[in-house]
Structure formats: C-alpha cells, structure tokens
Amino acid sequence: MSTLDDDESGTGTATERRRGPGLTRRLSYPVRRSVLRLGTVGSALLLGFLMAFPLYWMAQNAFKTRLAINAGVSWLPTGDAFTLERFGIVNNGAVLTYITNSIIVTIGTVLLVVAVSLVAGYGLARYDFRGKVAFARFLLLGYLFSPIVLALPLYLIWDWTGLLNTHIGLILALSAVSMPFAVWLMWKYIQTIPQAMEESAWIAGAPRWRGFVDVVLPQTTPAIIANALFAFGLAWNDFTFAQILLPSNDATTFPPGILRLVNASFETGYGDFMAVGLLMTIPPLLFAFFLQSYLLKGFEIRAL
C-alpha cells in the first residue's frame, strides 16, 4: 500500500522507522518504572506522615498527665506520664452540654437534609416546570453564600422570631447551607434511575408515591448516605453559625463552646482538649474508614 509505505526510501530498519524519532531520547523502561514507583512510595510516605502526625500527636497527648505535657516534647505517654484522667473532661458540665447540643443539631440537620433533598431531587428529576434551569443555576449560586453573609442577617431575624439560641434555628440554618449540594446530588442521582422502573410500578397499579417509596427510594441509598455524610460533616464541623446563632453558653455546640474554654479557662489544659478532641474525632474516623466509597460517589456525581 503506497499510503503507508511512502517513507520506504528512508534509511534505517523497519523497526526504527516504526518507532519514530521520539523514542530514542527516553530512559529505558525499567529505569522509568522504578523512578515512578520510588516517587509514588516516597510521596505516599511523606503525605501519610503529614496527615497522620497531628492526629498521632493529639492521641498520644490525650493520655498524658499535665505535668508530663508541661515537661516538654515527648513521644509516648509512658510510665508516670500515662493517665486516663484527661477523659474526665467529658464530665465537666459545660463540655457535656456542648457535646449533647452538637449531637442534637447534627442529627436534626442530617434528617432534614436527607428528607428535603429526596423530595426536591425527585421533583427536579421527574417533573418539568417552568424555571427549572434557572432554579438549577440558583442552586449553584448557593455556593457563593458565605456563612458569615448568611449568619449576620439571620442573627437579627432569629432574634425577632425567637429562634435565636434554639436548636431548631441552627438546624434550619445548617440545612439551608447543605441543601444546594444535597439537592443537586439527589437530582443527578435520581436521573440515573430509569423512569421505566417507576412506570412499571404505576402500571401494576401503584400510585405515584408508592412508586417513589418502593422503586426509587431503595435505589437512592448511596446518594442518601453521601448526603447524610456531607450534612454530618457540615453540622459536626460548624462553628460560624453556632457561634453567631447560639450565643448562650447553654445552647451552644461543641466547636464554639470549646473555643470559649480554650480562651477563658485556666483550669483545663492541652491534655484535656486533646482527650475531648480525640473523642470527637472518633465518629469521623469511623465514617471515613467504612463509608469512604459513598463519599467518593457523592463527588463522582460531580455535583457542582
């Protein structure tokens, strides 16, 4: 075939010609592969160390006596330095209240976000209505809202409506912040479930809501878990809203509460904070280990 053999007249063997001019500059394959492997393993070790060291530092110091911490840097709580007393901080009335409040707010937010995102996501995926596209853009805009931009106005609004210093007030605010992402994710996810499945349920005589509950709902489990995780991360984490919307010491959640202790109290030391920090890290750690594929799935929907 003349088309492919037109450089037949050129010099060099067939192999050289085939491999082209570019391949000669290269390092040999085994060299490249070991460089790459070395780079990967080295990077992994370095990054792993950077990620893990602060956690390790928190954990080991949670088991140290105050004396041992004040004595300076040490690597493990051994001998006299070891104590479990630090965990007694949970019995400190204030800290217990903060944690309880955090748990209430987190659970409330997760439930509300999951419920609303399901209904809204289903509506967006299955019903056409005017302004659907505009609404989608609007969801996107939700990302631009700074917590501060929302929280400052909400402070006075909540004050007037009596929601200031209530769990409900914070749950509503946090849900509103999680909602754009949650609705978007659910919307995209439900779109991947073929409508034919529902239609076959309708033909079997199921009303629309039965179709939703029996056919759609069970299949959205991954998206529900992803949404719940994101809402959990947001609520468990939230500092800004809680600080502004729950100014009272009795109502506030863990993050602003503990910061008050850090800045105000001289009775509690780093060991106590590390101990309570360790306790608060355990749920995220468990989620991270067991549910990471769901989190990743949430991001995979590329919910913008």
């Binding site: 492919l4 037109d6 082209g20 001019p21 570019g22 391949l23």
Partner: peptide
C-alpha cells in the same frame, strides 16, 4: 508519542 512532527502526523492520518 513516537515523536513525529505535526505536519508528518497529519499527512499520514489523512492518507
């Protein structure tokens, strides 16, 4: 990937 210059590549692709 084999390092051919752009005109050469496209010429061959056209063929």
């Amino acid at each position: 990937i084999a390092g051919y210059a752009k005109p050469d590549r496209y010429e061959r692709v056209e063929e």
